[in-house]
Amino acid sequence: MTGNLEVVTTRHNAAIDPVLSAWGWEIPVYLFLGGLVAGLLILGALYELLHPDRPRSRALRAMPFAALGLLSLGMLALFLDLAHKLHVYRFYLAFRWTSPMSWGSWILLLVYPVGFLHGLGSLDPAQRETLLARRALAPFLRPLLRWADGARRAVLKASVVAGVGLGLYTGLLLGTLAARPQWNTAVLGPLFLASGLSTGAAFLLFFRLDEREHGFVVRWDVGAIVLELLLLGAMLLGFAAGDRSAQHALYHLLGGPWTSAFWSLVVFAGLLVPLAMELLGRRRRLPLAALAPALILAGGFALRWILLAAGQASSFREFP
C-alpha cells in the first residue's frame, strides 16, 4: 500500500473532535497547585525532621496553612471542571484502585487533616495563644494541639507521605492514561513530584526565611531541578525508544507544535536559567532575588499546561 491516505469522518463531537479538548484550564491549574502544595508539605516537614533543633521562621511555620489554602484553590478548579458538579459526592462513595482520580480524591481527603495537624504543631507559642484566646475554638483545639505535639514526628512523616502521594498522583493521573501516547510514560509521576518540590521551594523563597532555611530550600530546589531535568531527559529517551505512537509524542516536543514552548518556557526559562541563578547566587548575592523562583513557578505551570495540551492532542487517531 502506498503512503497516500485520505480519511474522512463524520464524527464531530464537541471537545472530542477534531482534537480532544475535554480538559481546559482547570486541570493544569489544579495539577500545578497540587504539586506546589506537595512540595510545601514535604519541604516543611523534612526541614523539621532533619533539623529538629533549629528555630523556624514565622513564614515556614504558617506555610502548612497556606498550602491547604492553595490546595483548596486547586480543588475548586477541579470542581469547576466537573460536568456534573452535583455528583461530586460520588468520588467518596467509591474507591477504585485502578483509577488515579479515585486515589487522588482520597489522598486529597487525607492531606487536609495531616496538613492541618502539621500546621497546628508548627505554630509558635504566641500564635497558639492567639488561637486559644478564641473561646469557641479552644475546647477542641487544646486537645488537638496536645496530640499534634505529642505525635509530632509521626505527623511530620505523615505529611511527607501525603505530600509524596499528592505529588506523584498529579503525574500518575495523566501517566496512566495510555490512550494518550504523550502521557504514556512512567516518568510523569516522579517528574511531577520533582517539579512539585521545585515549585514548592520556589514558592517558599518568596517569603522571609532565615539564612539556614533559605540554604536548605535552595539546596533542595537545585536537587529537584536537576532531578527534573534528568527525568525530562528520560521521558524523551523513552519516547525515542518507543513505538510509532511514542515517536509521535517525541515529535510533539521535538519539531512539532509544542517544541518552542516546551524548550523555551519549561526547559530554558523554567529550569536552566533559575538553576544557574541559584548555583551562582550561592557565591555572590545576585539582585532580583525573586526572579529565579518566579521563573520556576512559571516553568512548572508551563510544564503542566504544555503536557496537558500535547497529551490531549496526541491520540491513536493520528495513526489510522
Binding site: 471537545a15 472530542i16 480532544l20 475535554a22 480538559w23 471542571d81 466537573l82 460536568a83 456534573h84 458538579k85 455528583h87 461530586v88 460520588r90 468520588f91 462513595l93 467509591a94 483509577s99 488515579p100 482520580m101 493521573l173 495523566l174 496512566t176 492514561l177 495510555a178 490512550a179 494518550r180 497529551g311 490531549q312 491520540s315 491513536f316
Partner: peptide
C-alpha cells in the same frame, strides 16, 4: 454516578 470528570474520555484510545 458520573461526575463528568472526563478521566474516561481521556482514557479511551
Amino acid at each position: 454516578k458520573c461526575t463528568g470528570c472526563k478521566a474516561c474520555i481521556a482514557a479511551c484510545p
